[in-house]
Design a protein around this nucleic acid. Structure first.
Length: 558
DNA sequence: ACGACATGAAGCC
DNA sequence: TGGCTTCCCTGTCG
């Protein structure tokens, strides 16, 4: 498949006169600004009362400036980022204009803004392959050896689920923090939120909503199904507990509680972040916000051994992942800017096999799903890094990809995750922070990136989804993508399959990918207080009201 | 159509 | 080390 850059797949947007970012209006604004700059000079506060012009008065009444001493008030428009006059940062229509005084918001380098950042124009620009290393994956290498030059295309084109197939709006009451597909039941998705609630959603039955509210009291950071029993799920939470829940009954056991004495202040409150299950060893591994790794025996629910310091003392360990092929290998990452590889047989403080250095906090680190020979990390320096243990070495990343996934305290941290179905172990999915103007709407796409080339394979978006989607999970068997936005869940399928699903579910509420009618403010802020709705067809409203009664199985136990 | 606010990490002293 | 301040493309509620 020929690599597709953003340029070719999304030709430059022609601004429609009907859209918000009408060129004529922005011209007017600019003219207005110029006028203001000419007319308005700095004035003393005393003069403020004499100002009759409403507009001028409004602008001069800055509450922060209220004081007794005579102070100067600038009526010039001021950049909200650097507080200097002469330019303004912010949205002009659906396009965000960066402050030129700050380093690029995307690549963090000074000298240019996001608008002119080379990484924005073509994502593969500046993608750094390490010298003298092959970035090809091991399977590709084997194929190449076997087939030589006679080979045609062994790597199938990636199938991208890019159409919203169904959605539940406001499934959660707080932002979604984790998603997990059921290991055997194809239509079951688990979602955890900031409040500690765990949702079980069958996206074949979009009106049925089950939310367990009694399992955790705050952020559900990670969920994993039991390898022995697929009706049981483990979850790690910032309330300092690991829960083990039976999905049928909703009955939950607390396996570990790091805060047995309750809240004693923020300096002692322990939170659990990274979690993974080690099937071979029969343990639940979990890491806390003080740098320690804990393990529990799955069968006896007993703690095994003492907690081990695996990251800088006092720093958060946000991710843990067991190698899919080598059960002795464990990968951790955290706020001390490192991802580390450990040998489970001889794990103790400072005994890591490798330290993968990053410039900022590492949000996530995952072994590749099949061979486990590659690692993808997501760091808050806006870069994805691929580390290849076979064709590279672990001293430096074999590739760095600039990608917008900035940290924001109000967003769940972005995590790049491998496509578990991709045999070439190259495709990852990650939400994008920075918005882009798509036909007049500022949208935050979900990106599919081929880590073997650094290229953006697809950017998935829907005009109705105006929120950022930091949590994304690819289905382990089907061409399905689940996205968690601020409070809503979305299921994406490839276009042709979406149509099939729509036919199959005739009469059910399905949110179609290409809404005919443009929702100005998107799904999330629709007036409707329904939990699900369709943007399709003229009779969707009547369908909605008919089906409203179905949305009633909200099981909240407390 | 606003303002308040939730609340994590970096950077400075 | 710790106690501030600042922050940039949020999103919701009142």
């Amino acid at each position: 498949m020929a690599p597709i850059t953003r340029r070719t797949s999304f030709p430059s947007v022609i601004i429609d006169k009907d859209t918000e970012s009408e060129p004529s209006s922005s011209e007017e604004e600019e003219e207005e600004e110029e006028e203001e700059e000419e007319v308005q000079d700095e004035v003393e506060e005393e003069e403020v009362s004499e100002i009759n012009n409403e507009k001028e008065a409004e602008e001069s009444l800055d509450p922060k400036r209220k004081g007794k001493a005579p102070i100067c008030i600038s009526l010039k428009k001021v950049c909200k980022v650097c507080k200097k006059a002469g330019h303004e940062a912010g949205f002009k229509g659906a396009t965000y204009i960066d402050c030129p005084m700050k380093p690029c918001f995307l690549c963090k380098m000074p000298g240019h803004t996001t608008m002119t950042c080379p990484h924005r124009v073509a994502t593969e620009y500046g993608v750094i392959p390490a010298p003298h290393k092959s970035s090809r994956n091991p399977l590709a290498y084997v194929f190449e050896c076997q087939l030589g030059r006679r080979r045609t295309r062994f790597k199938p084109a990636h199938v991208i689920p890019d159409q919203v197939s169904c959605a539940v709006i406001r499934y959660h009451s707080r932002r979604v923090t984790s998603l997990e597909f059921h290991p055997t039941n194809d239509n079951i998705l688990l979602s955890g939120d900031k409040k500690g609630q765990v949702g079980v959603w069958d996206f074949d039955k979009v009106y049925e909503k089950i939310v367990y509210g009694n399992i955790h009291s705050c952020i559900v950071n990670n969920m994993r199904f039991s390898p022995a029993n697929d009706g049981t799920v483990y979850a790690a939470s910032s309330d300092g507990t690991i829960s083990c829940t039976d999905l049928e009954t909703g009955m939950s056991l607390s396996l570990m509680n790091l805060n047995p004495n309750g809240w004693q202040g923020p300096s002692s409150w322990r939170m659990l972040y990274g979690m993974d299950l080690n099937k071979e060893k029969g343990v639940v591994l979990v890491a806390d916000n003080f740098g320690y790794l804990h393990s529990m025996d799955i069968r006896s629910n007993n703690k095994t051994g003492e907690a081990i310091l695996i990251h800088k003392r006092g720093s958060k360990v946000v991710g843990l992942h067991c190698n899919p092929l080598q059960p002795d290998l464990l990968l951790s990452c955290g706020n001390d800017h490192y991802a580390r590889i450990w040998d489970m047989r001889q794990i103790e403080a400072r005994s890591s096999l490798y330290e993968l250095a990053h410039r900022r906090v590492v949000n996530s680190a995952y072994f590749s799903p099949i061979s486990g020979s590659k690692i993808v990390t997501t760091s808050q320096d806006n870069r994805l890094r691929v580390w290849d243990s076979i064709f590279g070495n672990l001293d430096s990343p074999s590739r760095e990809i600039v990608h917008s996934h900035d940290f924001n305290r109000h967003l769940t941290p972005f995590r790049a995750e491998w496509d578990p179905k991709d045999l070439s172990e190259s495709l990852v999915v990650i939400g994008r922070y920075i918005s882009e103007n798509f036909n007049g709407a500022a949208l935050h796409p979900i990106d599919f990136i081929d880590t073997s080339t650094g290229q953006l394979v697809a950017e998935v978006m829907d005009p109705n989804i105006t929120t950022i989607s930091p949590v994304n999970k690819l289905h382990p068997r089907e061409d399905v993508l689940a996205s968690g936005s601020s409070r809503s869940l979305f299921i994406w399928r490839p276009k042709e399959k979406s149509e099939l699903v729509e036919q199959k579910n005739e009469g059910k509420i399905i949110v179609c990918g290409r809404a005919e009618k443009k929702h100005k403010r998107g799904y999330e802020s629709d007036d409707s207080d329904d939990d699900t709705f369709s943007s399709k067809g003229k009779n969707s409203k009547s369908k909605r009201s008919k089906l409203k009664s179905h949305v009633s199985t909200h099981k909240t136990k407390r």
